[in-house]
Design a protein around this nucleic acid. Structure first.
Length: 149
DNA sequence: GCCAACGTTGGC
DNA sequence: GCCAACGTTGGC
């Protein structure tokens, strides 16, 4: 079963928000490579929930996909930060998935620590300049990260 | 198709 | 707030 990692700004949606909500829609992805990965996700697949653009960036827990990709409604909502004037109900290029809480890491695994792991050199997350917000995680990478909890 | 300009991401 | 790196846009 494929594993994934997705980034979220905790001010927008944190692992603790998801823990409280139970489920949430993962929307607002506006990068084609990330969107293509979203579209490859299937219900049941787990992902690392990464906190980005915050005082302590790192992997904050685990969640799982509960509904595979469908048209992202925020692209059609003029009031949304993620509104895309070029999207329409007939032609919406953006996708969202629904996710459910699994586990929160206390404390989270800091990015600085992930960067010291030789097993993670191939993971885009730790590569200089990489901004990919949705990425696959290899089984051995997943296992290596779990040992850091 | 090239590429400069611009906007965004995201760590620090 | 800074800025490196990247993706996108649009003129040509």
């Amino acid at each position: 079963m494929p594993y994934w990692l997705m980034k979220s700004e905790p001010a927008e949606l944190s692992i603790h928000d998801l823990q409280r909500l139970g489920e949430a829609r993962w929307d607002g992805v506006r990068n084609y490579q990330a969107r293509n990965f979203l579209r490859n996700m299937q219900a049941g697949e787990p992902f690392f929930f990464y906190h980005s653009s915050c005082p302590e960036p790192g992997i904050a827990g685990i969640a799982r996909i509960i509904r595979p990709a469908y048209p992202d409604p925020t692209a059609l909502d003029p009031d949304s930060h993620y509104f895309d004037a070029k999207a329409s109900a007939e032609k919406n290029p953006w996708s969202a998935v629904d996710v459910a809480f699994v586990e929160a890491f206390e404390p989270l695994i800091p990015l600085a620590r992930l960067k010291t792991q030789s097993a993670l050199l191939a993971l885009p997350l730790v590569q200089k300049g990489s901004r990919l917000s949705v990425m696959p995680v290899a089984a051995d990478e997943w296992a290596a990260i779990l040992t850091l909890r």
